[in-house]
Design a binder for these strands. Sequence first.
DNA 1: CGCACCTCTGCTCAGATGAGCAACAATGCC
DNA 2: GGCATTGTTGCTCATCTGAGCAGAGGTGCG
Lengths: 318, 318
Amino acid sequence: MSDIDELLSIRAAELYYEENQTQDEIGVILRLTRWKVGRLLASAKANGFIRIEIVHPRARRLPIERRLRESTGLTDAIVVSSAGVSSDAELQSRTAQAAADYLTSLRPIPRTLGISWGRTLHDVSLHLKQGWAPGVNVVQINGGVSLNQRTGTAASTAVTIAHKADGSATLLPSPAIFERLETKQAMEADRTVAGVLALARNAQAYVFSAGQADANSALVDSGYLTVEQIDELVSRGAVGDVVGRYIDANGRIVDPELNERTVGIQIDQLRRAPLTIAVISGNNKHAIARAVVRNGLCTVLVTDEDTANALLQEKDTP
Amino acid sequence: MSDIDELLSIRAAELYYEENQTQDEIGVILRLTRWKVGRLLASAKANGFIRIEIVHPRARRLPIERRLRESTGLTDAIVVSSAGVSSDAELQSRTAQAAADYLTSLRPIPRTLGISWGRTLHDVSLHLKQGWAPGVNVVQINGGVSLNQRTGTAASTAVTIAHKADGSATLLPSPAIFERLETKQAMEADRTVAGVLALARNAQAYVFSAGQADANSALVDSGYLTVEQIDELVSRGAVGDVVGRYIDANGRIVDPELNERTVGIQIDQLRRAPLTIAVISGNNKHAIARAVVRNGLCTVLVTDEDTANALLQEKDTP
DNA sequence: CGCACCTCTGCTCAGATGAGCAACAATGCC
DNA sequence: GGCATTGTTGCTCATCTGAGCAGAGGTGCG
């Protein structure tokens, strides 16, 4: 397009979008026919001079969602807008809200819902509305009775989600990781625990988050792992954890021995499930989000705009 | 508006603006009539959830221009968008471009145009196109033969503007400020200088910028004033200079003695002129811009979005 | 120079949209 | 409960807008 037309398209856009003039009126002002004005406006849009942004905590980015679905094979993608967000916490809250909305609108409503625990899932539980579903059995899919003062948040997440759905919660009364394999096997042999695990394996849908492998991991906070252990895992290629299990960029278990001592459903069970909803948000979680999505660990991803864009860019340069 | 309607309006906006769906189609998706969708879209706009921005160096902000005109009594206001600007220099370049555009479109074309000098005016001269006007006599309205190495930029600004208009430049061959009043008076008595000053006083239009009163002032750079003198002026209320004369927030000359030693047209002559175009841009020039506009020193203001917003906010809380 | 080719322009026409209106529902006040 | 007031809904109609098309004008090639 010629230089003069570019300037005209900007003048037309000012009058159209900022002054609410009709294309006809703009034509009179700029001494153009209304068809020319329409074409200038279209070219301004095509050239990206017009930026339209929806500024709202609940706003989603549908075009990015579609591109994500197309490029990753996800059955669904929910991407919240990060327009006007000042902190990571706000972004995560928005994402949790979107996950709650997604759960609420799920059809058919799952009878049993497997969930992991963590800050994100807890946030999701808080955003769900009372009566979001008519009775759901919520099952914990990985161990989480905390070793330290944060006892109970894992349980409270499950209980809250179930309570708000007028349903029931089935807790997995076990630590996330055992120190000795024998203890873990003994625990799993227990009739109650085995029953919960069987229920977890047969859940119709799963909701889980994922943690970046660093010193702020919930597993460190909860006392299951030390910072040194995380460093060791990272040096062996770990990018983060999913339901308590550390994976590398290719979705493989980093430390099989550690994995054996971890209580809960296996990564492969997630991979085989028909409906697995990953809720991952925050600027430090791009790597683990990528690992989860690329390796088919989820069928639905709920995330923020920045993480989604990071995923898309990686797809462009494989 | 109800909470649920707000959320619906966001969903509608996503489909309308990001997915290019028609209001009818959105109605089917959200189970609403197309009229309801239209109203939701309108309310989303009214609530400011839809932000439309024109991203282009030549983009202007017409609504702000109008509010400026209305609240200040300016006959015209040109406000350039600061969307996507990274540096003050870029913003000033955009503003200079807009000033050049404004000059080019001026009707009737002024036969004599009085100009000051400085970085901004020089920038304007560079952005003017060859043949921007069919013959204009450009007159310098304040002294400016520089005392140091920057000799000639003042003259070159006037010459460039005149040359590009296929017109002539009349230079004021005098320093900006004399050290002794007697020398200044003797200079003004000179027939040539007196003639230039008379021409300057009778110009049909003026274009000038203004400087913030600080150590970076062009008058300091050029060696006319010391940093200490500026500090003294500031302590007496000076906010900046217009055509080489320092004024306070109320538009009054801060130091009458210094003013007497300054060569060029008086502030009052600007105030009485029918067409005076001030070009003021940059985040550090809000105070001087305010002084110029509030005290009627210009009839047309060319500025940037941030400065314009600062002026408008001040108006709200008088 | 003539011809084919391409771009741009102004048009018709159908689809999309906003203004205004009457009916209706909800609310608050007696 | 009766009634006025206010806000909401679905509509008609006029206007606005985009798609598609025919012709004008401009360009390059033989």
